[in-house]
Amino acid sequence: MPRKTTKKLIDKKGVRVDGRKPNELRSIMIKAGVIENADGSAYIEQGRNKILVGVYGPREVHPRHLTQLDRALLRCRYHMAPFSVDERKSPAPSRREQELSKVITWAIEPSVFTDRFPRTSLDVFIEVLEANGGTRCAAITAASVALADAGIPMRDLVAACAAGKVGGQLVLDLMDVEDKMGDADLPVALLPSLNVITLLQMDGELSADEFEKALNLAINGCQQIHMIQREALKTRHIAVKQAVEE
């Protein structure tokens, strides 16, 4: 039986369900280099989202016929663990996961110099351990950190964040309930230094004016996330430096 939410998504004071202000991100923690066996890896916690990313490559392409002679083949696999959501999710790749895998690949590919290592493949495995809305953005953010950690030549990091409309108001970084019960959702991926958008999706309804405001809000969120990505990559190497230089 579907439960009815009696609670409003935004109260009179403009506070959201989880106590955030409309233009506030969830708390984000990123860690680089968490998997010893992968060439590069990252772990992100964004609110209640928990995502682990492993990067393998560049390596020989399997199956062989997928080889591209002028550039590397970038493949992402977005997968949700059976225990990542309230009701058990079948571990088989669903239609939604296949779509997200494609969309994430397209969002990341413009940032990678794939033409520098032709005839190879770069495999990005994204494992969603716990999902609470906005996983595609968190996955892109973490995958980009993992690629940088693997030492892959890149134009820029990719930071992703969603904006949207909830209870008639524009908000940043939607969580699960806000996405489902809200009016619109607008995930954006950005190359922050070059100011290039690599992913722009929209679901729901926004006026032209609201769209522009929401887009700017999302871009602002991406820039904040970019700072956290940089910190994550920095800490990994600074710790060693400080420990020995004392």
Binding site: S111, A148, P153, L157, S193, L194, R230, L233
Partner: peptide, 9 residues
């Protein structure tokens, strides 16, 4: 100095 991909040098 430590730099990241995309940093303007």
């Amino acid at each position: 100095q430590l730099v990241m991909p995309g940093d303007l040098l």
